[in-house]
């Protein structure tokens, strides 16, 4: 099995959807190890469905490989155990559980107790505010703090790939920028591969190395973040300005 840096996460001819409604019609894309890759596109293009297919939440045809291992057809919990952490739309907070419990759940599949404690400290390093709220129910936190809990929970898996679905949704611009800064820091310090779906293309391209543009269930454009940013059509459609 080839294991080149350029083909860490590979999606080939992926068709997926809900029941009879197919949303993805043959998606092909690759993400290199350690890269941040942005998935851009209009509403209803299938961005969320793509992430859900990656983590096994929706079934599909085609192929999804992570470092050579087949992901397609596995249940979400099996995919998680292979090191894919998915922060879903709406953050997936366990509302009545405390912040600490939420974070510990991220490490549910791990057995290395000592390392888990270390990782908790590391998460508090990224998100100092959470340390003050450890015993609070996660549902009582603000939207931005809940997004931090979600990110922290994902980190507790020691993921090989981090899937982020619209992390900016419902957050103030300032909070969003802070969050993206932290995602970038995580990517740089942990060498975690990140796939981020984002409406705010400008923001996502700011931290991404590569990008794919999805339209009505097909990839219409792929390239480095800079190339995509420079593309006139993308600029018009998603960035809201002309180059």
């Amino acid at each position: 099995m080839k294991d080149t840096a350029g083909e860490f996460l590979v999606v080939e001819d992926l068709h997926a959807g809900y029941g009879d409604a197919t949303v993805l019609h043959g998606v092909n894309l690759t993400v290199a190890r350690g890269e941040v890759c942005a998935i851009l596109g209009p509403n209803g293009a299938g961005k969320t469905t793509l992430l859900r297919a990656l983590s096994g939440m929706v079934k599909g045809r085609g192929a999804i490989r992570l470092d050579g291992a087949d992901l397609l057809g596995r249940s979400p919990d099996a995919v998680a155990r292979l090191g894919v952490a998915h922060v879903p739309e709406g953050r997936g907070t366990f509302m009545p559980l405390t912040v600490e419990e939420n974070l510990r759940l991220g490490a549910f599949t791990r057995r290395d107790r000592a390392a888990i404690e270390e990782d908790l400290e590391r998460v508090y390093g990224y998100f100092p505010v959470l340390k003050q709220r450890l015993k609070q129910p996660a549902g009582s936190l603000s939207g931005g703090e809940q997004q931090m809990v979600a990110l922290g929970r994902a980190l507790m898996l020691r993921p090989r790939v981090l899937l982020l679905d619209e992390p900016s949704l419902g957050l103030a611009p300032l909070v969003t920028r802070e969050l993206f800064g932290i995602v970038q820091a995580i990517n740089e310090q942990e060498r975690t591969t990140v796939v981020v779906v984002e409406q705010n293309a400008h923001l996502a391209l700011g931290i991404a190395q590569c990008a794919h543009v999805l339209e009505t269930g097909r990839i219409v454009l792929s390239g480095t973040a800079d190339e995509i940013q420079a593309d006139e059509q993308v600029a018009q459609s998603y960035l809201g300005y002309r180059v």
Partner: peptide
């Protein structure tokens, strides 16, 4: 803890493995 997680948010529980 896992059981409580499932009780509150089964989809998210699946995602943490």
């Amino acid at each position: 803890l896992g059981m409580r997680a499932v009780a509150t948010n089964p989809e998210s529980a699946r995602l943490v493995g």
